[in-house]
């Protein structure tokens, strides 16, 4: 882990009408960090994650990615998103495209790779996520766990500098959770910077370098996994952990 700050979030706020979901969140994410975000449902953790690549447009505060304020008006958001991978709870594979095309679409259409280069990369990535035989399959033919591994491969095809995971295992059958978490562990071990909203406390404890507890739109506690789980200081966190552990 280096000290190079990739993402800097300052006083991030988000309202949906009268409902304030994020009430001012500030944190920094450095290169190589694996940050797990946990919290009760509806606490704003997904909204926070989605604000990092502007899928949700914040109503206040700023997000700086690699020195560039992406929340500033006039920023080329599409360009920045190329470097911020995202993995969704519902996988969101492109249903109309084969697995290979799912992976190659963005690099090819954005002119980052030629078709052949992208296809070669897709084969490598499919190998890496353990699904080399699925290149010509379609999303509807895959299990949830397979879909999520493909979604990760699709994201990796863009060579992102950071990857955001929005509850990547919450929509999976229990027996498929393991294969996805295993892959994420490998990514972390390879040095990928990751921000993971999750309910998998085991993963947070084992893989994360830092854990955030978000509740009612603010970060209540932020610590190393050991301290976070073994000596939680915030009372809401203590209550939360006593329910989920």
């Amino acid at each position: 882990m280096s000290d190079k700050v990739l993402l800097e979030v300052k006083d991030l706020k988000k309202d949906f009408g009268d409902h304030q979901v994020l009430k001012g969140i500030s944190t920094q994410i450095s290169q190589g960090e694996v940050v797990a975000i946990i919290g009760p449902s509806g606490c704003g953790k997904s909204t926070f994650l989605r604000s990092l690549n502007l899928l949700e447009v914040p109503t206040g505060g700023s997000v700086v990615f690699e020195g560039k304020e992406i929340t500033a008006p006039g920023t080329d958001v599409d360009k920045i998103r190329q470097k911020i991978g995202m993995v969704f709870q519902q996988f969101n594979l492109f249903n109309n495209l084969s697995i290979q095309d799912n992976i190659t679409l963005a690099p090819v259409k954005l002119g980052l790779m030629g078709k052949e280069e992208a296809e070669k990369k897709a084969r490598e990535l499919l190998e890496r996520v353990g699904l080399p035989s699925k290149a010509n399959a379609y999303p509807a033919m895959l299990s949830g766990g397979q879909k999520q591994r493909i979604a990760i491969a699709r994201s990796l095809a863009m060579n992102p500098d950071v990857m955001l995971f929005d509850e990547p295992t919450s929509a999976l059958d229990p027996e498929m959770v393991g294969e996805v978490l295993e892959l994420m562990k490998e990514l972390a071990a390879d040095g990928m910077t990751m921000v993971v909203v999750t309910h998998e406390m085991g993963f947070a404890r084992e893989v994360a370098t830092r854990v955030l507890f978000i509740d009612e739109g603010v970060i209540r506690e932020e610590n190393t996994p050991q301290e976070f789980f073994d000596h939680p200081k915030n009372q809401r966190l203590q209550e939360f952990l006593s329910k989920v552990l």
Binding site: N53, D78, R81, F88, N92, F94, N95, A106, L110, M158
Partner: peptide
């Protein structure tokens, strides 16, 4: 599904590309 275009946008595709390659083909079908 909204997630289809979110996935497209999250990869850096712009609105037009997302519509053209992802949303419209599925809508048409």
């Amino acid at each position: 599904d909204e997630g289809q275009s979110e996935a497209g946008r999250s990869l850096g595709l712009n609105y037009r590309q997302t519509m053209q390659y992802i949303v419209i083909p599925q809508a048409f079908k």
